[in-house]
Design a protein around this nucleic acid. Structure first.
Lengths: 341, 341
DNA sequence: CTGAAAGCGCTTACAG
DNA sequence: CTGAAAGCGCTTACAG
């Protein structure tokens, strides 16, 4: 099938007997051009199905109006919700979005960052790969184009960072358990000191301290990979204790759901004997029974906010280095796993 | 923060005292250039952190190596799994991917298609918006660049289509229920004749016919929006029948899960009294209890296949119009909702 | 083996 | 009000 080539300004100008410049100006509603000419030009343009080659335009102005997005894993519900927000907001503002995955590999992340700049993206939105240690390469790119980090961020990279109020969210979750009368509140967190895990743990500690509840090391469990399986495994450890906890705060929904499954096996009543709270408000949290109390993270809002800050930076290049951290508010969704305790 | 501009060939050539052409050729390993020159050039290029401007390159060759992707909704797990496959395969073959959403609106779909061509994407991968009726505009675009459809497709668009074996998958699911000894098998499907719903319904009918089981209109329920809530609602109708069905085949997991929740409320034993089978193998299907028997759709494979066909078409533009339909095999995952019945 | 020049499609300062 | 020309960064046929 032979493809039609796109109509160009040249073709239009030849057809009209006008210069390319005039045609270009007419289409862009330049004030110099007479109304009559504009009409004529626009009419033919429509007829010949003219679409401007944005590539050529961007090439000249050194602006592509393309934003790069790098995330660890696109098929994570929370991530794709953020992406939705990014797409919406970008489109609204006339930007296109190129998305790629780092698969949580630091080398891949740097590689993607490099090809993105090669492609001439105007800026990059990025959620860091797990265990990103060496930020040298990222800083190099940051010298060339603006970057805005979201969700998985790092204080080692001086740029705008959009996150949820992790610490406060965790505090609220644990406070909720305390208000329920729970005293022995276990936490399931990550071994590695990821930004998110650390903050949520800090919130947990602050809540206990504020309510004068002793922090018990035995009730603080960690796992490398905070999955459903590991949630189940760690919950089993908690269940086997002589003095069981009366609540479990897992820093992800999946781990919380694993815990629920484990409690179920042992016929432990949720929330009467042990209440469970998760983090994310994933779809699963409504499917599991009892439905899971969890922290709702407004993904789309995070995405939209990140785009807004990036574009602001792009369109005001004179402003100072942006290094602010923007916190998006979360809310606790109380469901059966911690109700009527 | 003042941004460093990217190094250009011009800068390199000035520094080296060579012409731009020579530098370009050296970097591209043109056989004409002496090894010595190549070494010198490459060394400086690395030193000065030179990255070719792919934009300029693509602009000249009229190939951007960017693929456009349009999906109804990115934050659908199945969709994002397909996207994962698309990203992987595209990257492997040196293509970038621009993603956008149609939000299931036909006008938005056309709009996205237009801006994508404006952007100069080499080709488009698309899953159609629900109820896409007017394919005129799509055909117009198809005259300019190749399109490959996946998942939500339409026979009205003459191009390569990548789908799962919907009909056979549904057949297998229903056959499985029949082999369990079920005789009154209800189906929950979509009102509207979407490609997927129609095919799955056809598979259902074929299975019943093949096993000489009468098709009962009362057991065929439809809903506009095949959601969890509607699954629950329709299941309630089935439950209230004098002669209840002994199995429910819902054409989506969500609807199946809704059905399970409804059965649960009425203390109906699953699968002994009523078995349930879904379609998608979403994460939820393992979270719900009993775990749901469902059809696994290899999303990543669909994505990868679609990319492969598109690129093949791009790189062999001489070949005839491509209109083949590629079917990706699914498999039935049997879980507790239909086990030991 | 290397260079000067044209051209991809567009915009825009400069002339008229 | 309109046009000729330069230029964005690159590749490549044409000369030498």
């Amino acid at each position: 099938m032979s493809r039609k080539r796109n109509t160009t300004l040249k073709e239009l100008s030849k057809e009209l007997g006008l210069s390319i410049s005039t045609v270009s100006r007419a289409l862009n509603d330049h004030p110099d051009i007479s109304l009559e000419t504009k009409k004529k030009v626009k009419k033919l343009a429509k007829q010949m199905n003219y679409v401007p080659n944005l590539f050529a335009r961007g090439f000249r102005s050194r602006e592509t109006h393309i934003l790069g997005v790098i995330v660890p894993n696109i098929s994570h519900l929370f991530t794709s919700t953020i992406l939705k927000g990014i797409l919406d907001e970008a489109e609204l503002r006339g930007y296109r979005v190129i998305i790629s995955e780092s698969n949580n590999e630091e080398t891949k992340q740097v590689e993607m960052l490099n090809t993105m700049t090669q492609f001439g993206v105007d800026g990059v939105l990025m959620s860091l790969a797990r265990k990103t240690k060496d930020v040298e390469e990222v800083l190099k790119i940051l010298n060339r184009i603006p970057i805005v980090l979201f969700d998985k961020v790092s204080s080692k990279i001086p740029c705008t960072q959009v996150v949820i109020n992790e610490e406060e969210a965790a505090f609220n979750a644990v406070e909720h358990l305390i208000e329920l009368g729970k005293k022995r509140i276990a936490i399931i967190k990550e071994t590695e000191n990821s930004y998110n895990s650390e903050k949520r743990f800090a919130g947990y500690l602050r809540a206990l301290n504020q309510y004068n509840i002793p922090v018990r090391d035995k009730l603080i469990l960690s796992t490398e990979d905070i999955s459903l399986g590991n949630g189940r495994r760690l919950a089993n450890i908690l269940i086997s204790m002589k003095k069981r906890p009366d609540a479990i705060f897992a820093i992800t929904d999946n781990a919380a759901i694993g815990a629920i499954k484990a409690l179920h096996k042992f016929n432990i009543k949720i929330p009467e004997e042990i209440a469970v709270v998760g983090f994310s408000n994933s779809i699963n949290s409504t499917i599991v029974s009892p439905a899971l109390t969890t922290v709702d993270q407004p993904g789309a809002k995070i995405g939209r906010t990140a785009v807004r800050f990036l574009i602001q930076e792009l369109e005001n290049p004179t402003s100072d280095v942006m290094t602010k951290t923007v916190e998006i508010k979360t809310s606790l969704i109380v469901r059966d796993s911690s109700l009527n305790a």
